[in-house]
Nucleic acid binder design. Structure first.
Lengths: 338, 338
DNA sequence: GGGAGTAAGGCAAACGGTTGCGCTATTTTT
DNA sequence: AAAAATAGCGCAACCGTTTGCCTTACTCCC
């Protein structure tokens, strides 16, 4: 691809025998430039197909009209929906969006953030990796004057801007629903116990039991590493209990799929012998004929949109008159069956 | 967020009472700078937490170390997988990735591409929108010296770099598989007939019939607008034929889900009364207990990776000694059942 | 001792655009 | 008619880094 020389303000100035500053002002309709000159400049600019060199402007204005989104995985539906919404909002404001995918690797996350800082992005939206323990990057960005908004997986720091979904609400709804149907033995197939997402689910689960005065029994909460076989081991553990659960809440939709399959193979009938509520609510349930009773929707679209809005508020408000925002989206039960 | 002033080369120079050029050279280990000076510079740079202003460098070097990916939707799994792979490759080369989502809107596509050109990205990967008919943007980018690689949905222009998947292969495999099992009445639930993707499927479908000397009958090919109800209408049309098909090939996995559900509701047994082969091979089948016989994988990951590789070849090879690449990935049947 | 060679670093221009401040005319005001 | 205001435009600096070329001061060698 040959290097193409693109017209500059200086060229226009030379051809018109006027100064570059006049050209610049004319192109911006500055009042102190006469009408005729302005027209001549614009006409020639049009003819030459002139367009400003943004890199020069970015440089001079110390602004790049670019925001970045850093998250564990782009192919994960939750994130791709969120990023899609973020792109929409940025696009409407003529910002571009850079993305970085950390793959839950703390080193890589760090590197990406450094690169973005070097690129002088105007702001960053971050969903931290599962394993990220070193929050040093926050100060680094702060020192660089780059505003940050966290979403989904956020640090436990009250001074940061954070957008999260509250799993509790959905979980309580789920338990209330099961309880209303008379279920007493409700199981939870949770994710790895060190995951904040797992901890949150478990807390909410216990809370729900307390509210409804259900007897909480440890053995009804099992953990899976979220692999296929892990999921199957988890359900087998539950099914081998003296009194097997009649209702199950699963960590996410993929777990639910695996578990439902395993349960069917044991000869149990879904939504009859055993009921399910799942997390995430991927679109697939709409197409299935015996989906779980419900799925707990976490609204990645709303979270993404809100994160973008807060970030743009930060970018616009140069002043620091904005308190750190902590916005919680209540998750909500979406019924599929009954 | 207060504007933070970040140290510059000039500052370092001033504090050390040497010239900026010396500082710049020292930081780059230029041989003509003495060891002591180099060390002094590096030490101070470290202390001040200096880092080069990339926007200045981008500007000066006429290079942004940024590529862009423009595609219809970020939340579509096919694309999010592709983009994930692209990001990986770019990241390994210390490039950043900007994304733009056209939502199949030609205006928006155009605007995004203009913005990216203005941003002076080093290259662009494009999957065109369904409705894009005006290829003018190609020349615009060419004039700007920005290399372009198309993938998935590509223009029919032999001079462009194009990465596509060949649906034909998978389709032929599908028909061969069905034929080998003795199926004679094979149906196709296709997408909207004006879509290139639909046309391609239909062509391959006919081709497969010809190869196996099957009797091709028009009424076994139906179209759906890909909505839920469209899918159901389509299958009902097929089931109401005097001799209903015993095997079905569906436009994509979502169509398959809907159709399988409808078929089950009619009392037919999947993989017994009627067999399915689907396109796309989303991960969900692995978790289901009665998936279609097979799904035709189009390898978005490989396509994305290849697109990125070709683009970087173009970016590196300033010379125009590269012929336009036309790379076809053969789609391939992935068995799920039997 | 004088010329050549080398090591170490400075000068200044350049990338493209923006902007504060001047400088000329011309017009308006008194 | 002199003073003041205004319109229209140019000068030059600046943003931060890079780089070709020049300068200075040694060192070396015949």
């Amino acid at each position: 691809m040959k290097a193409v020389k693109r017209p500059t303000i200086k060229e226009i100035a030379r051809k018109l025998r006027i100064s570059p500053s006049t050209v610049s002002r004319a192109l911006h309709d500055h009042p102190s430039i006469g009408l005729v000159t302005t027209m001549r400049v614009k006409k020639l600019a049009e003819e030459l197909n002139y367009e400003p060199n943004q890199t020069a402007i970015f440089f001079k204005q110390r602004k790049t009209f670019t925001i970045a989104v850093v998250l564990p995985s782009l192919s994960e539906p939750f994130f791709s929906v969120a990023i899609s919404e973020i792109e929409n909002i940025a696009n409407a404001r003529d910002y571009t969006v850079i993305m970085g995918q950390t793959l839950d690797d703390e080193q890589r996350e760090r590197r990406i953030i450094e690169t973005l800082k070097a690129h002088r992005v105007d702001g960053i939206i971050v969903s931290m990796g599962k394993n990220t323990s070193d929050y040093g990057f926050i100060d680094i960005l702060k020192n660089a004057g780059i505003p940050v908004v966290f979403f989904d997986c956020v640090p436990d720091l009250p001074n940061e801007n954070r957008i999260v979904s509250n799993l509790r609400t959905g979980m309580l709804e789920a338990i209330a629903t099961f309880h209303a149907k008379g279920h007493q033995k409700i199981g939870l197939i949770n994710g790895p116990s060190q995951l904040p997402a797992s901890k949150e689910r478990e807390m909410a689960f216990r809370h729900g039991f307390a509210i409804h005065k259900l007897l909480y029994e440890e053995q009804y909460v099992v953990h899976s590493d979220l692999s296929r076989s892990g999921n199957i081991q988890a359900i087998e553990k539950l099914l081998s209990l003296p009194e097997r659960p009649s209702a199950l809440i699963c960590f996410n939709d993929y777990v639910t799929l695996d578990v439902m399959k395993a349960v069917r193979e044991k000869g149990l009938v879904i939504n009859q012998d055993i009921y399910f509520i799942s997390f995430a609510n991927y679109p697939l349930w709409q197409h299935m004929d015996n989906p779980p009773m419900a799925s707990i929707e976490q609204f990645p679209d709303k979270q993404g949109a809100k994160a973008a809005e807060v970030l743009f508020d930060l970018i616009d408000n140069k002043a620091e008159d904005m308190k750190p925002q902590y916005i919680v989206f209540e998750s909500s039960l979406i019924s599929h069956n009954f």
